[in-house]
């Protein structure tokens, strides 16, 4: 099981698209930096076909910095300690940037 981090908005690079195309059951997504914009409700469509086994997270420091509230409820907000904890819980970390 893999933790995938994404640090770009859905349109500034193909990072999110490539990541979504490369997931295995039981993997997790973590939006960081500009990646957190993908959790805006307007982008919810991108994630509707994800298997239920994929956990979705975002880095709260990055979403707060960008003034994002009322985000896609499928994403759980975590802090850096949570990021570290996820890195341990999953077998490896793949960065999409």
């Amino acid at each position: 099981m893999t933790l995938h981090t994404i640090n770009k908005t859905p349109t500034e690079s193909s990072a999110l698209n490539n990541c979504l195309a490369s997931l295995s059951d039981g993997d997790a997504l973590l939006l960081i930096e500009n990646g957190v914009y993908a959790a805006m409700p307007g982008y919810a469509e991108l994630f509707t076909r994800l298997p239920a086994s994929i956990q979705c997270y975002l880095l709260g420091e990055d979403s707060s910095a960008r003034g994002l509230n009322d985000l896609n409820p499928d994403f759980r907000s975590i802090d850096y300690d949570g990021f570290v904890e996820l890195s341990c819980r999953y077998n490896k970390v793949v960065s999409w940037f």
């Binding site: 893999t2 195309a21 490369s22 997931l23 295995s24 490896k92 970390v93 793949v94 999409w96 940037f97």
Partner: peptide, 17 residues
Amino acid sequence: DRSGIATLIKQHDQVLS
């Protein structure tokens, strides 16, 4: 294909991007 890529990632210890 997509599932082949997912499997490839799963099979390796360290992934560098």
